[in-house]
Design a protein around this nucleic acid. Structure first.
Lengths: 315, 315
DNA sequence: CTGAAAGCGCTTACAG
DNA sequence: CTGAAAGCGCTTACAG
């Protein structure tokens, strides 16, 4: 069922059908009504590929993500999808499974006019190479959470340095005297958190380590806090060092969610990223890039929502 | 950068460029090499919309899902994405946020030639209406986990009735004497689980309730088991009835994952669905539908992987 | 082995 | 208010 079929049935030109269906005011109401009625009867649906070809835009936006397990992936995807729908765009989520080949494949698709822009959460390729062609062609790209190692990119992320500092302060307030800092992921978000955590410890002369085990110079009586991006890192650390850690005495500080065994810790703090604000900011930047208003590259940091206490025992 | 540009530069016809780039053996090797070299130099990328228009296929498959929070969504999405990539398809995940309007919108897109087929996890519309046009046009559709209320559909799901029966048996083996059955979701998967759970209880004359609270005729000494699709349903029940339930004595049985507070229960059983098998089966059905080999509608049940014991205390 | 031509299903100046 | 024509960027019979 195409415009041509409808044109034949209504005995008008195909161009009139096209106009009528898009409610072009130039077509006579009577003609329009007839055409729309027939089109509905026949179950006409436009062929989007044809429309895209002539208009040069797709009204699709891609979101390229490593997997579906992390909150930083799930939540922005939901919020973006919602807010972009209202703007007339469809958000299409594609997974690269932390695989560099698949990642390049998906970036390549973007160069083939499948979308008008893309949100990217990178995690395998921080080099310029796979992005080169997109960047040369000024394809609208917005990075979320973490960014590649080159400067020609726009990124929306949490104010991770400040957030990590705040998280550490909470732990100190709860009695932490020594720290294990586990922000070891090799991405810009973890690097910022690491900096935020370590800076304050150096400033306050608090002993800390960034290794996988508890060092000898840690005082056996000093209360230990472990800070990390996810509870699984902390749990893993706990298991390796369970002989030295006392059950129910360690303090834990993580981002986003706590999924660990609570009984192991005396206090658990969770720093909540403001995913809704991140998504809204990313959507806004994308739309202005598509409109051609924002040629600039910038990194926008969103303040973390709050730090909540999942568990606190009085001592 | 289009075929036309390359044709001009190489001083050949556009059709020769098209053939050369697709390695048509008819073009002379020397010509092909020149063309491919130039195309690479110029960073040529085909316009997929144009190709789709002439070929009448997109090599895209959509997956339409309610949200990203459930394992039944996350895991099949990952496995499908992986296996379909190998077959030359891109899997595009779209979210309808449990919203009927958005859901219809996405189904409508499918009628507009955006994909060659779609995997659907329904949860708002079990009626025929929104699917009608797709079904009339024999658009390849594979439902996952749950299915709509009409028969013209192909579904891949867990053998939920058997799985629920097995889960109940585990609880009985662990000492359960009375049951709370919470499979209350209004979808085909929950209905099958409900049946599997209740059937065996009736057969074995075990007292059970399907309500939101513990009924009076429950013996106060008999060990209680609660079975549900997710741990959050059980936790919610526990909180409402915490005054009657004894801490650490109830038995819990759920599907997929345990996220609850373990200390409340004496035994926790988790029935693991075989998401990999579900995804593989769904992919296979989709491909044969696209190839036109499978006009049949069928429901395929995948045996649950296993029931694991997350917590068991000896008594 | 290569070219000229038609066509996929749309949109949109340009005439009338 | 409507039609005839060109064109978006490809692919593929059909000739030669």
């Amino acid at each position: 069922m195409t415009l041509k079929n409808i044109a034949e049935i209504c005995k008008v030109d195909i161009s009139t059908v096209s106009r009528a269906l898009r409610h072009d005011p130039r077509v006579r109401e009577q003609t329009r009504i007839l055409i729309c009625k027939k089109a509905a009867e026949l179950g006409y649906n436009p062929n989007l590929a044809a429309r895209q070809l002539v208009l040069g835009k797709t009204l699709n936006l891609w979101m390229i993500i490593p997997d579906l397990k992390q909150s930083i992936v799930q939540e922005p995807a939901q919020y973006l999808s919602e807010s972009l729908n209202c703007q007339g765009y469809d958000l299409l989520v594609t997974l690269y499974q932390n695989d560099a080949k698949t990642f390049s494949h998906l970036l390549n698709r973007l160069s083939q006019n499948v979308a008008d822009g893309a949100f990217i959460i990178p995690s395998v390729d921080y080099e310029l190479a796979p992005y080169e062609s997109l960047i040369k062609n000024r394809f609208p790209l917005v990075f979320i959470d973490r960014q590649p190692d080159f400067s020609e990119c726009t990124t929306v992320t949490t104010a991770n340095t400040d957030a990590a500092t705040a998280l550490v302060k909470q732990c100190i307030k709860a009695g932490a005297e020594q720290f294990i800092v586990l922000f070891n992921e090799t991405n810009s978000a973890a690097v910022a958190r690491f900096k935020g955590a370590v800076d304050i410890m150096i400033r306050e002369r608090i002993p800390f380590t960034t290794g996988k085990s508890i060092p000898e110079n840690f005082s056996s009586s000093g209360k230990i806090a472990v800070v990390a991006s996810s509870s699984s890192s902390i749990e893993q650390f706990y298991e390796v060092n369970s002989s030295t850690l006392h059950l129910g005495e360690t303090i834990a500080g993580v981002f986003d969610n706590w999924f660990g065994l609570s009984e192991r810790y005396s206090h658990i703090f969770v720093c909540k990223q403001d995913f809704r604000a991140i998504a809204n900011q990313a959507a806004e930047l994308m739309l202005s890039k598509i409109a051609g208003n924002s040629e600039m590259f910038q990194t926008i940091e969103i303040k973390a929502d709050q730090i909540i206490s999942v568990k606190a025992i009085s001592h």
